[in-house]
Simulated scan of single mutants.
Amino acid sequence: MARVAIVTGGSRGIGRESAERLASDGFAVVVVYGGNKDEAQAAVDAITGRGGQAIAAQADVADEQAVAAVFDTAEKTFGGVDVVVHAAGIMYLAPVAELDLDRLDRLHRTNIRGTFVVDQQAARRVRDGGAIINFSTSVLGLALPGYAAYAATKGAVEAVTLVLARELRGRDITVNAVAPGPTATALFLDGKDEATIAGMAAQPPLERLGTPSDIAEVVSFLAGPARWVNGQVLRANGGIV
């Protein structure tokens, strides 16, 4: 029987690449999407077209009933849940002095409450021997102007990750966070001019932006062979910090 992974934010970017990578590793995958059913179905089709197993499921990650229903679906369809990759998130950029507080509330709801809700279900329902993988950001260490609200939400993600790893003692479940650096996704590229992008690409010693597949490689590692990596934040950023 295949191991089963739930991937939130699985219809695009790092989430989609992670879903496809886990499917190629032999996981049956539940691709969780927020609003774009067509993109989620395209991710499913890409996986099944290569002989993998996948279904799409819609959920607002901050809605505990919707998230519980996703886990129900995974259990009914594939028999259980072994890995949860929580890649869903939103980002608004503005200096502290200028940020619209409604946007702060939306960041909090999706990035903090959403992580807590997904992790709560994962803590209750991931099978022994599984893995929970959250997403932080390397911006937390870089402290870039304009990123205060977003980085603050990811600081909360790291706190939840490290505590949950210890709360799951005795179940052989690892809990880690991946903290990408600048990665060429729509979320990152949106609103940035070429000079800004070129400047960020020049920062790592490897002198390029990360790619979604670079991050999916780390997810694959944490979801599978990395059984002795637990309660950690893995900064996948080409060596910026």
Rank of each mutant, 00 (worst) to 15 (best):
R16P: 04
S18V: 09
A19N: 15
R21K: 14
L22N: 02
G26R: 02
G26T: 06
F27A: 08
V30W: 06
V30R: 01
V32G: 14
G34L: 12
G35W: 07
K37W: 08
A40R: 02
Q41A: 06
A42I: 01
D45Y: 12
I47S: 15
G49H: 06
G49N: 04
Q53A: 14
A54E: 04
I55D: 08
I55E: 04
A57V: 03
Q58I: 00
V61L: 10
D63L: 05
V70D: 07
D72N: 09
E75K: 09
G80C: 03
D82V: 10
V85L: 10
A87C: 14
A87G: 10
G89A: 10
I90F: 09
I90Y: 05
M91I: 10
A97P: 01
D100W: 13
R103Y: 12
R103A: 10
L104K: 03
H108S: 03
T110V: 14
T110A: 15
T110G: 05
N111Y: 09
T115H: 07
F116P: 00
F116Q: 08
D119A: 10
Q120G: 11
R125K: 05
G130R: 12
A131S: 15
I133R: 03
F135P: 00
S138Y: 13
L140N: 08
G146F: 10
T153F: 09
